[in-house]
């Protein structure tokens, strides 16, 4: 499963490709920093079972993000336009 790498968004006349691939390494680094801390914190608090729930939520959220690939939204109402595309 690969998350979307770019996103096209257009509002009215202004359209831009957003490079999502720049975001994922940052998210990965933050997760690598956060998860050990969360594990330690929950182990000290004696609520280690919650850590596995958090881990499952993160994995499910990642799966959700990956499944968004292919989403296409185009809405035109008179002079207003909104386009979102995740190839």
């Amino acid at each position: 499963m690969i998350p979307p790498m770019v996103m096209w968004i257009k509002i009215q006349w202004f359209g831009i490709w957003i490079p999502l691939f720049l975001l994922w390494p940052i998210v990965l680094v933050l997760l690598l920093l956060f998860l050990p801390l969360a594990f330690l914190g929950m182990a000290i608090a004696g609520r280690l079972s919650k850590f596995w729930v958090v881990l499952r939520i993160i994995l499910a959220a990642y799966s959700m993000v990956c499944s968004v690939r292919g989403l296409q939204i185009e809405i035109q109402k008179e002079n207003r336009t909104l386009e979102i595309y995740l190839p």
Binding site: I57, L71, I75, Q76, E78
Partner: peptide, 24 residues
């Protein structure tokens, strides 16, 4: 009357991923 154009394509995988997420 107001003239609207809508074209939306939703991946079916979102449904499965959404249910997995909702179960948590």
């Amino acid at each position: 009357h107001a003239r609207h154009h809508v074209n939306v394509r939703i991946p079916l995988k979102i449904i499965r991923a959404g249910v997995n997420l909702a179960s948590l």
